[in-house]
């Protein structure tokens, strides 16, 4: 464990807490893409298949349980919660995210570290996480204005993978056997997808103005 990875995990956790806070305090999920949340639930379930088979550390196990349970809870809230579900932007959240699932599944069957069920699922989850934010970014572009908590949610979600890139660079130089090309390339693509959001987020923060994304 190095400081970059720990910072990345904490930033990721903060993004989930901000989202839960928004849904819990405002009892609303306006501006939140259910499709992105469903993709994240798939990402965590397919990535943490080793939750019960490999014990890495208490920290690792606890964080996996937190990520899986929070992502499923958020999907349940937006789908089933009698108050929250009313504010779901169903007509704006129309990204065909199952296409992303199909494309990542095909890619994982072609490019993986080892051809085993667990490894292919792991590669699939890495690829899917890189593109899981797309429905959310499309929804924000369509709705134009971004409320503070949603903006912070996307900002922390993007920042966590940037910390992981620093972690991979650090591990590459400090551990002789460390090569995780699948994670690195996918992580760079993932962070790049946030780039334009980061740009508008920084501008709005600098001008102390409301975050407006160009439609």
């Amino acid at each position: 464990m190095n400081v970059f990875r720990f910072a990345g995990d904490m930033t990721h956790l903060i993004s989930i807490l901000v989202l839960l806070l928004k849904i819990y305090t405002t009892k609303s999920c306006s501006g939140i893409s259910l499709k992105t949340q469903e993709l994240y639930a798939v990402v965590f379930v397919t990535r943490y298949l080793d939750l019960v088979t490999d014990f890495i550390s208490v920290y690792n196990t606890v964080m996996k349980v937190v990520f899986i349970s929070s992502s499923l809870a958020i999907v349940w809230c937006i789908r089933r919660h009698k108050v929250v579900r009313r504010s779901y932007d169903k007509e704006l959240d129309t990204f065909r995210h199952w296409l992303l699932v199909g494309a990542c599944a095909v890619l994982a069957l072609v490019v993986h570290e080892k051809f085993s069920f667990q490894e292919v699922c792991w590669a699939f989850s890495i690829y899917l996480e890189a593109v899981a934010i797309l429905p959310q970014l499309v929804l924000l572009q369509r709705s134009g204005n971004v409320d503070n908590l949603t903006g912070q949610y996307v900002f922390f979600l993007g920042a966590y993978r940037a910390f992981y890139i620093l972690n991979w660079i650090y591990r590459y130089y400090s551990e002789q056997h460390f090569t995780r090309w699948i994670s690195c390339v996918s992580g760079i693509v993932q962070t790049a997808l946030y780039a334009d959001f980061f740009y508008y987020y920084f501008i709005s923060w600098k001008n102390n103005s409301k975050l407006q994304l160009p439609a």
């Binding site: 990875r5 490999d54 996996k64 551990e175 090569t179 995780r180 994670s183």
Partner: peptide, 10 residues
């Protein structure tokens, strides 16, 4: 050094 197959990252 653990084999690279062990996924120790989240």
């Amino acid at each position: 050094t653990e084999p690279s197959s062990v996924k120790d990252e989240l």
